[in-house]
C-alpha cells in the first residue's frame, strides 16, 4: 500500500506549516509554493496527515 499526497498549488499560500511537520515529505519551491512527495509508504501516512491537518489553506490531500 502506498499513500498519495496531492497538493492544490492554487490554494497554497506558502505558509510552510507542512514543512515544519515533515520536512522530508514537503518543501517550498522558488515561488514559495508547496511541493510534496507524490507517493510514500503506508508507514508515513500519519506524518502526511499531520501536515495536511495543519495546512492553513487546507491545500493538502492524503489518499
Amino acid at each position: 500500500m502506498t499513500v498519495r499526497i496531492v497538493v492544490d498549488r492554487d490554494k497554497c499560500q506558502g505558509y510552510g506549516q507542512c514543512v515544519f511537520e515533515a520536512d522530508d515529505l514537503f518543501g517550498l519551491d522558488e515561488s514559495d509554493t508547496c511541493v510534496a512527495a507524490a507517493e510514500v509508504g503506508e508507514d508515513r501516512r500519519a506524518d502526511a496527515e499531520r501536515a495536511a491537518d495543519v495546512c492553513p489553506m487546507q491545500a493538502i490531500t492524503v489518499e
Partner: peptide, 13 residues
C-alpha cells in the same frame, strides 16, 4: 503553538 498573519505583502509567522 504556532500562528501566522497576512497583512499586505507582509507574512508574519
Amino acid at each position: 503553538p504556532s500562528f501566522w498573519s497576512d497583512q499586505y505583502d507582509i507574512s508574519l509567522q
